[in-house]
Structures are given as structure tokens and as C-alpha cells.
Amino acid sequence: MWNRREVILGSLGLVVGLPRPALAGQDNGSGKLIEAFTGGKTPGEGKLSLTMPEIAENGNTVPLTVRVDSPMSPSDHVQEVLVVATGNPAPEVARFHFSPASGVAQADTRMRLAKTQDVVALARMSDGSLQQARTTVKVTIGGCGG
């Protein structure tokens, strides 16, 4: 018989050694898109909010709100917000370009979600700093015309 230590070590080896096609297959290029936006910098959190429903019955039209806490003055405002879908056929969803004349850095739209996935939003401020927000949406019926 194996003792407990051997069993535990053995099963660890099995998990690590398994090929991971499932995980690799999930990459739709969202990582690269995020990297291109951030330039490798780590975004902060807390100022950007991405609001979406927790459960979307119809993936064809899922409401989305991005909002950034910013004074929106000529010297300190939000320039751009990128929305990325991690589980759609293509990662890019939208880019919003704001200006001080926006008054409030908020935009709403409706998007397609092919399946349950994380949606990521990234914001770039006029001083170059970055903010990130992420939310998970459960999708009942996918929305890419499959």
C-alpha cells in the first residue's frame, strides 16, 4: 500500500502534468489587447466601475455602464476606456473617448456575450495613470449568432 504522503505527491504530479488544452483554448487574444493598452503597467483599482448584470438571459444584448471617478478638468480627466470580452470570438468590445466637455466620465451601451465570461474595463487618465475593473456575467443564451 502507498502511504498518505506518496498518494498526495502522486496526485499533485498528475495535476501539474496534465496538458491544458481547455485553458489554452480560452485565450481569445484578450491578454494581448490588455497588454497593448497598459503597456505592461499594472492598473490601479477603485476609480473605474464596470456595471453589468450578474446574469444575462440573452447574450445578444447585455447592458454595460462604465464610469470613472474623475474631476474631468482640462488638467485631470479620463481620456479613454477600453472594454474587453475574455470569452467572445474577438476580445475588443468598445473604446470610449472622453474629453473635459464630457463633464462626467460615464458611457452606456449594450454588448454581445457569446457565453459566460469575465468582462474587463481599463481606463487611461490624462496623466497616463491606469485603472481597471472586472466583472463576471453568466449568460443563459449566447449572443454571437452561433
Partner: peptide, 13 residues
């Protein structure tokens, strides 16, 4: 990835 009949809402000062 934007839905058919695109809805866009934004602010203006």
C-alpha cells in the same frame, strides 16, 4: 461585440 441597433449614452457639459 456591440449589439444590433447600437445604443450609446454619454454625458456633455
Amino acid at each position: 461585440a456591440i449589439s444590433a441597433n447600437p445604443f450609446i449614452e454619454f454625458n456633455l457639459k
